[in-house]
């Protein structure tokens, strides 16, 4: 049925946006982290979205080219930001090198805030879409009542 596909698509969008939100908050929390289990300072993370075709029933897919255009979202990978860390002069710090410099991750507060706001809005858009889908499905059930 068409509507279940719509629910599935919106749900995939919400999952992806929530993961994006988690990554942004993780970046914010680690804005001053100089030591990680992998060694070196924390690297800023970013999500990479790809669209993923939603396969309904085989019959539906066969019947219409339109069904093949439906696609949900998937976070295909979480990438490390390639930008190098910032060097700060702080000789008292235990992670400071011989010259007294520490490396802190290059995380821009504004960038992360904008990312978070964008994720929130996209999540809300998906919630609205789910509500609309539910309304329509319920209305269809009322036919002939």
């Amino acid at each position: 049925m068409n509507f279940f596909n719509a629910f599935r698509i919106s749900a995939s969008g919400m999952t992806a946006q929530r993961l994006r939100m988690n990554v942004a908050t993780s970046n914010l929390a680690n804005i001053n982290t100089t030591r990680t289990p992998q060694g070196g300072p924390y690297r800023r993370k970013d999500v990479y979205f790809t669209s993923q075709p939603i396969h309904g029933s085989f019959r539906n897919t066969l019947r219409s080219a339109m069904a093949r255009k439906l696609s949900g979202v998937k976070v295909s990978k979480i990438i490390d930001d390639p930008r190098p860390p910032i060097s700060k002069y702080n000789p008292q710090h235990p992670d400071a090198d011989k010259k007294g410099y520490i490396k802190v991750p290059r995380i821009n507060l504004m960038e992360e805030m904008v990312n978070m706001m964008s994720a929130t809005r996209s999540y809300e858009a998906n919630v609205t879409a789910i509500k609309a889908t539910k309304d329509m499905a319920l209305k269809a059930l009322e036919i002939g009542r």
Partner: peptide, 18 residues
């Protein structure tokens, strides 16, 4: 209409997909 709805929902979900 329900098919169009699915397409719109798909567009909304992929609003941030490159």
């Amino acid at each position: 209409r329900s098919m169009k709805h699915s397409l719109i929902v798909s567009n909304i979900a992929n609003k941030d997909t490159p």
